[in-house]
Design a protein around this nucleic acid. Structure first.
Lengths: 378, 378
DNA sequence: CACATCAATGAATCCTCTA
DNA sequence: ATAGAGGATTCATTGATGT
């Protein structure tokens, strides 16, 4: 059992806390370690289990560079049945050590989150919210075969239906411009200075989570002095944020590479880093309104005609959001550029719709949608 | 079997379509009706299944004993098992009637979506994306005990891993200001004039979906003339949008109140005309032009030199349509890959010909030939 | 030093047709 | 079925390099 350099600050008042290895990383299998911990002793669990990605072959970007994928052994399972078995095992162990009012967070992608959620329900956890982490800078879909995989899903569940889990409603509302915090969160992925690198400048862990995400989770659903356990500790984002926020952590991890990086990282943390808190303020999600949504929402009908201000050009709107003008077809911007023989064109101001014989730029319609969105969110 | 007022337009060429009750609402249980439809006959399924875990008719165990309290864990499990059974039943029926390249969409909330997703995987469906419908105007959480439930989840899955489902990538991209469509979609919930009301001004259906949502689903993952089936038809949003977009629909619904509202609604819809429904042709669907035909048609002479954009490499065109560059010889793609040390290369965009000192990609010459082919076939 | 340009990269179930 | 060849495909951000 490795201990971090940080002394355990502040003990909880409960007697059953006395044997908890607080602010410590336990080395080894998470199920075995959890089974050794006293029952009903942990306030919050954050779990980032293996996703069970099923990658067929390597993936190359359009420039022929290789994508450095998750191909680690810890993410390999023979079948859904094996994955379910694994999930049920660690979750049962997690449930035993949770206090009656304790809660759990689990994060995953479409590969595993449905199995995770169903197992949570089967074991008697009570679902409180599913939360979507919208990535502001996801990896694109390089082959153009699917929607950009731009989010991951988190589940927040209490130990049982009768639990009264911690939820810092007022603090969240305050930090969210005085409106209720929604179930869709926008954060960038973990890059830049926050991303841990080894001596070769390679990433230490393939799936390091951003601290901003953990910050909101821990801030929202735990109290100072609480014990937060992470059974898949990795490079210790949970521990780092818990320490910053004055919570105790218990990490469990098998890989020494990750543990060493986590120890170093957490030792360097100073609790209550106020500058970091400032950066965690949620971005005001600016609604981007693409042309297609004007059609989807019925403001422009497929088949409608659009003109430039001088009526030199006339184009037809198609149901898929494309514009046709003579032999040219494409986006409002592209067709606008093509008919004028330019490289680029702002279709929003170039194209106009007709209303009672008058022409108005389609940008007015976008403004209309934006205003509606503003009003609704206010 | 009720039929809508709309005549079935345009039949698919496949023989197995001939017995499909196109543009029709089938009255009754969706499992029974799907079991009567011909197998491999439907292109797309959109399903908005009920998620009340306490089913309205009351819950009975397989031995017909009544399930009373849903308070303790065992009964919760029993209730989930019952829901899983229902899910498995309708999904199996749905899978049978899907064409090999067919796909399914299922929408749900955290109450049911995890069970839905796991069952999809268990039955052999192949997950393509999970998509988040972000509601611009969700109902607030009045008690302030949770995050505002501001989204629902959709799963898009093909019938099997081998399926090649329809995905109108280009159309989506250009309607989204020329960037890939992401997995998080923003739409308002269904209100105002779109929301169907009865004589008492009460909403006809408790969970009527917005047409904009279905518009994107159907536009993105089906083709004009396709058959779109909705086993939980409700007030017919799927049918209304399918009709607008020139797709056939088959609806299945038990409640006469919903059916009557749907019939009236769909009868009033005027489909968009065909030019408006035409979508962007993907590059993959363009006629194949072998490099050799550029030589045959005299656009490039044997012995001509081709360069990459930076003039790092120079190759010679041979009369048989092959390229030579140093010791490398082969197709434009193969030689392009070899000189760069890559596995693959698109020779059409990599190699350039020289004209008055300027370099132009040979893809321009291919476009020239394709344009001529267009004119011939028109 | 300011600013432009280029290169690198991230939890990914990522092609299609013909022989 | 399987192999091989044709040829289609990327966004936001960070950090380094160049002007």
């Amino acid at each position: 059992m490795l201990r971090t350099g940080t002394a355990a600050r502040k003990r909880g008042p409960e007697a059953f806390d006395s044997h908890l290895p607080l602010d410590t990383i336990l080395v080894g299998d998470c199920i075995e370690h959890m089974n050794r911990l006293p029952e009903a002793s942990v306030d919050l669990i954050f779990a980032d289990p293996p996703y069970n990605l099923q990658l067929e072959e390597g993936l190359t970007r359009p420039d022929q560079s290789r994508v450095d994928a998750v191909d680690d052994d810890w993410d390999k399972f023979d079948s859904f049945a094996h994955y379910d078995e694994f999930t049920k095992a660690w979750m049962s162990a997690a449930r035993r050590i949770l206090k009656p009012d304790g809660a759990i967070w689990v994060i995953g992608s479409y590969h595993n989150i449905f199995r995770v959620g169903a197992t949570l329900q089967d074991l008697g956890f009570w679902m409180l919210n599913d939360v979507v982490w919208r990535k502001s800078n996801p990896m694109p879909n390089f082959r153009g075969t699917r929607f950009t995989n731009a989010h991951e899903t988190l589940i927040w569940a209490s130990r049982s239906q009768k639990s009264r889990p911690t939820f810092n409603y007022e603090a969240l509302k305050l930090s969210n411009d005085d409106t209720q915090m929604r179930s869709d969160w926008l954060f960038p992925i973990c890059t830049g200075g926050e991303r841990l690198k080894d001596a070769n400048d390679d990433k230490v862990h393939p799936t390091q989570k951003p601290e901003a995400l953990l910050y909101r989770v821990i801030m929202a659903t735990s109290k100072p002095g609480d014990v937060v356990l992470d059974p898949f500790f990795g490079t210790g984002t949970t521990g780092a944020v818990a320490k910053k926020l004055g919570r105790h952590f218990i990490g469990i991890e098998r890989e020494n590479t990750y543990i060493n990086a986590a120890l170093k990282r957490i030792a360097a943390i100073k609790p209550h880093d106020l500058t970091a808190i400032a950066t965690m303020k949620p971005k005001r999600a600016e609604p981007r309104v693409p042309f297609g949504s004007l059609i989807e929402q019925g403001l422009i009908a497929p088949g409608a005609q659009l003109f430039d201000a001088q009526r030199r050009y006339c184009s037809i709107v198609r149901a898929d959001g494309s514009l046709v003008c003579g032999s040219h077809a494409g986006s409002i911007h592209k067709v606008g550029a093509l008919v004028q023989g330019f490289d680029a064109c702002n279709g929003w101001t170039f194209w106009h719709y007709e209303h009672k014989g008058q022409l108005y730029p389609i940008d007015d319609l976008r403004a209309h949608i934006r205003a509606a969105l503003e009003k609704l969110s206010a």
